[in-house]
């Protein structure tokens, strides 16, 4: 469980292993979204799409020293169908772009993308014939992490930003996502 006893999730309280929430939180229009978001926010399983040197930093972030388990994000899923967020870690070449797009398409909604590092965010200093100038040219990106490579703290910050973003999401997400994917 991501929350300590008695901590407010915005949707209710945890007492032991039981979550307590108000009925009207659930029944009001969009009310259940709070609980749903709470669940999603604390179980962001990642698909690591690791292509380059940022991968080393990703590995260090994934280990116990920085403990992404605190954010429910410690489980990498190597099947995109089981993953919630795709970490694009490293340079993406145009030759590789179809693979990235395909993996993204195989992920089930709701899904998010984090661009890890300068190359994934913008192509970095690889402004040439081979390199995609930011993975948002291929798939929609939710959080960009600057750095070459990013500090692990920056990655933690990105995960928390993603949690905040998930927390704000409602049905309108789908309309927006649909528009963005075109």
């Amino acid at each position: 469980m991501g929350l300590n006893n008695g901590e407010s999730s915005g949707a209710g309280l945890l007492e032991g292993s039981v979550m307590v929430t108000r009925l009207d939180e659930v029944t009001k229009p969009g009310g259940a979204q709070g609980i749903i978001n709470w669940g999603r926010r604390w179980s962001i399983f990642q698909y690591p799409f690791v292509t380059a040197c940022c991968g080393m930093e990703y590995m260090s972030w994934m280990c116990s020293h920085y403990d992404p388990g605190r954010f429910g994000a410690e489980a990498p899923r190597f099947s995109p169908r089981q993953a919630d967020v795709m970490f694009v870690v490293g340079t993406i070449s145009h030759k590789q772009a179809p693979v990235l797009k395909r993996v993204y398409d195989q992920m089930c909604e709701p899904k998010w993308v984090i661009a890890f590092g300068a190359c994934a965010s913008s192509g970095g200093f690889y402004d040439n014939y081979a390199t995609v100038q930011g993975v948002d040219c291929i798939v929609p990106v939710d959080v960009y992490i600057p750095g070459c490579p990013p500090r692990p703290e920056a990655v933690l910050d990105a995960v928390m930003l993603l949690q905040e973003k998930i927390d704000r999401e409602g049905p309108e997400r789908w309309a927006r996502r649909e528009a963005a994917s075109k």
């Binding site: 145009h94 030759k95 772009a97 179809p98 797009k101 965010s121 913008s122 192509g123 402004d127 040439n128 014939y129 995609v132 100038q133 930011g134 948002d136 040219c137 291929i138 798939v139 929609p140 990106v141 960009y144 963005a180």
Partner: peptide, 23 residues
């Protein structure tokens, strides 16, 4: 110099627009 030959259709970047580095 900017002779890119993408294999998938490119989206328009939502966040950053580089004037001299179009996608």
């Amino acid at each position: 110099v900017a002779g890119r030959q993408p294999l998938v259709p490119l989206r328009k970047s939502e966040v950053h627009v580089f004037e001299n580095n179009p996608v």
